[in-house]
Amino acid sequence: MDLFRRFLRNPLSLTGFIILLFFALVAALAPLIAPPQGPVGTSPYLIPRAGWGTIPLPPGPGHLFGTAEGQYDIFYGIVWGTRTAFGVGLAVVGASLIIGLVVGSVAGFFGGWLDELMMRVTDIFLAFPYLVAAVVVTTILGKGLDKVIIALILFGWMGYARLIRSSVLQVKEMEFVEAARALGQKTWKIILRHVLPNSIYPLLVQASMDIGSVVLTAAGLSFLGLGAETGFADWGQLVSFARNWIKGEPGAPFQYWYTVFWPSLAIVLFVLGWNLVGDGVRDVMDPRLRQGRNS
């Protein structure tokens, strides 16, 4: 609780926390804020269309934020896209964290050839830039958010594995681990009860800082047309709808500003929220920064 209070005392972390709280509310109350309009049985994540024309409509009654190319309602897309953003960010980071935790702790604790093997496999996965790997995997697996999540997990666990391995290596030489071993505890129990709780904090800090960048990458894939299916409530896709509309009619350079502005604002605020929170978490959790005051 003391940690949490210190976290909230930092104005930047507090701002981030409020932003995320706001988005969490929007995600939870999505059916009330933007009631689904399709017939019963259709997915609420499909954005309703105001018509079949291509030209975006300006904000007005019925379309609070206007409509995007293809007359998809921007307000609806942003509200339901909040759920998509939370889902992708948490699923990818959560699953990567678990894979990294298993690989890193096993490699670090057992050492020897197993460690060597697992770390070389990690090196191999690290031989691909994140975005390039994600593009290749989604191209092969096909379109859809689930494929994006798989691709991002597949190439997102290595950092955690390396991090947990190095802290396991430090912790396993400590006396209390040796004591547990001397008392005849089973190996997996030692890892679970004694080693992991003592080496997991840097991992959590890293995870909270990574959610923002995962959401950015997923949005980037959607922007490239490799992410969510057309019409699915996803912020990256809404921005990609805006690509052809940065140019207004002659004399009106910013005529279609709303197609770019609203979805971009949602992405930027969401990622900013996670980054501020991640930064704050790091400051509170890292005792070195606390004493040195060089946050």
């Binding site: 923002g212 960048s213 949005a219 921005v239 930027v268 990622v271 980054n275």
Partner: peptide
């Protein structure tokens, strides 16, 4: 690092 490159580029 909160600003997506595609948003920055479009703007």
């Amino acid at each position: 690092w909160s600003l997506p490159t595609f948003v920055f580029g479009l703007v």
